[in-house]
Design a protein around this nucleic acid. Sequence first.
DNA 1: ATGGCATATCCTATATGA
Length: 268
Amino acid sequence: MKIATFNVNGIASRLPHLLLWLEKEAPDVVCLQELKGIDKAFPAATLRKAGYGAIWRGQQSWNGVAILARGADPIEVRRDLPGDPSDDHSRYLEATVGDVLIASLYLPNGNPQPGPKFAYKLKWFDRLIEHAQSLRAAPRPTILAGDFNVVPTDFDIYNTRSWKKDALLQPQSRERYRRLLEQGWTDALRAKRPEQAIYTFWDYFRQHWERNAGLRIDPLLLSDELAPRLANAGVDTWVRGLEKASDHAPAWITLDAPRKKAGRRPRT
DNA sequence: ATGGCATATCCTATATGA
């Protein structure tokens, strides 16, 4: 089973890339972020023709998240992060696909900092930590995937020099990410490739892609029911190299089939 | 300290992103 997350930076502009990638890599479940369009503009029929059922929560111009499933329809569990009824950004969507609970999330960027946007980011992060804790309380295979807008450590960026004051590297952001992981989530790509420089974002400026000057900000977090099943993990960097690409590339994991429960084996 | 580029929209200009 292959599960991926991809910040498309505008699904209308990126639809050709999305379809090409789906066809080539055939992920079973996909979390999308930054749809940047209203619900009515979501290309559900086109994705259906490509073999994917979908749920989505759009928004005019900004944000927007979706969950796709190959040959299946994700069953929506929630479309809001709890904790602030006044928050109307489309940044969180949660569904079940088979026996897996999966969340597609787009954490606020938070720049410039300090300021109201950074305060919103930290508050949103606190709400995520609280909700994630409640998810951990249930014994169910769970994945949190998306654009977390945090560079977890200095190893997750090509060079910190011009990013020291950026919201993505602030101690407050990193401390929250660490606190989230401490609940018992496994950062799949880092767990699988502890010594490797892995990036999922290369900004459009200053030829960052050409220089592989990237950031790793699109993780997939696994609950402890799933961590032992982690088989492989990677980034489809070829998508970032396409003409008119998103500034993010899809990140993915593969999971082994669940182990048969001991004692349930039929006698031969 | 600024800007480089890309996207979307109330589009010869502005807001947002990371």
